[in-house]
């Protein structure tokens, strides 16, 4: 590793934002499952490492009736997988957590890290998008919140500025009868990145939300498609229409080593239909 860095692990949010303000070339370390790879391969360099795992606010993992979940930036993917109430209320999020990396990696990787790295195929992005998640960001100027759907700006790019620190992600509460599913296609069954990822959610008013991963430069929520769906009835027959229609919303890379765009167009349709049928309680696809 060519980086020469020192290591700082503050125990308060104030100290962390202050440090970021004063030290450029700082990398924020949470789980480290992406950062340690790019540092050791010299893809990234830094002079300082800011370990955020000892900051109390970032270790918050709470549910409040009517307000939903707050998941701090130090919470690991396996902690999310193991949370029973979250699995009951937000199945797609737990399924996304189960699908990320390998068991060992999930013991270190964090949900917020997965989002901040902004890989187009980030497993937790699509599930969080269908739940209207918000990202809470601290800097020396104070704390602000932004909708996750406005957070990603490109491959591995977000709206975050160098002095920003994400504290956590909040997910609004859901009502009884709300259901969701996360489906993904990868080359092998075990630990592997995905070719296509889709999260679908139906709320008690029968409104369908859809988000996709790995088929464009950013994970995206398909608001326009959702509006078109809202004009139709949620029946099993809608599955074929959806499978065809959803393809017009994606833009898979030509040069991906994992699969051709043609394959991704096809699979996106297949998974969309399968997900819809799962949610409206019909087997098949």
């Amino acid at each position: 590793m060519l980086s020469k860095f020192d290591y700082y692990k503050p125990v308060s949010l104030e100290k962390a934002t202050e440090y970021l303000n004063e030290n450029s070339e700082t990398k924020i370390l949470a789980g480290g499952t992406d950062l340690l790879i790019s540092l050791q391969k010299n893809k990234e360099r830094c002079k300082h490492i800011l370990d955020i795992k000892a900051i109390p606010e970032l270790n918050r993992f709470t549910y409040t009736e009517g307000r939903g979940y707050f998941i701090g930036a130090a919470i690991t993917v396996n902690q999310i997988s193991e949370e029973k109430l979250l699995r009951e209320k937000y199945p797609a999020i737990s399924q996304g957590a189960d699908a990320l990396g390998s068991y060992q990696v999930r013991n270190r990787a964090t949900m917020v890290g997965n989002i901040c790295n902004a890989s187009p195929g980030a497993d937790l992005a699509a599930p969080l998008l269908v739940y209207d998640a918000k990202v809470h960001i601290a800097s020396s100027e104070g704390i602000r919140a932004t909708d996750l759907c406005d957070f990603f700006t490109g491959v591995k790019k977000t709206i975050l500025k160098p002095k920003d620190l994400v504290i956590g992600i909040s997910i609004p509460d859901v009502e009884r009868g709300d259901r969701s599913v996360y489906l993904r296609k990868s080359r092998i069954k075990g630990a592997d990145l995905c070719n296509v990822a889709i999260a679908l959610r139906i709320n008690p008013e029968n409104k369908l939300s859809i988000a996709l991963g790995a088929v464009s430069t950013i994970p995206m929520r398909l608001f326009e498609l959702e509006r078109k769906i809202a004009e139709r009835e949620l029946t099993p027959e809608l599955g074929d229409w959806l499978a065809a229609e959803i393809k017009t919303y994606i833009n898979p890379r030509r040069d991906s080593i994992r699969s051709s765009p043609e394959y991704r167009y096809l699979i996106t349709g297949v998974l969309a239909k399968r997900g819809l049928l799962k949610l409206i309680d019909k087997e098949g696809a």
């Binding site: 480290g32 790879i37 490492i49 060992q104 990696v105 013991n107 270190r108």
Partner: peptide, 15 residues
């Protein structure tokens, strides 16, 4: 108590 990849952890994080 948890299985982890030691290649992706800084030794100092194991304080």
């Amino acid at each position: 108590g948890r299985a982890v990849p030691s290649c992706l952890i800084l030794a100092i994080e194991a304080q």
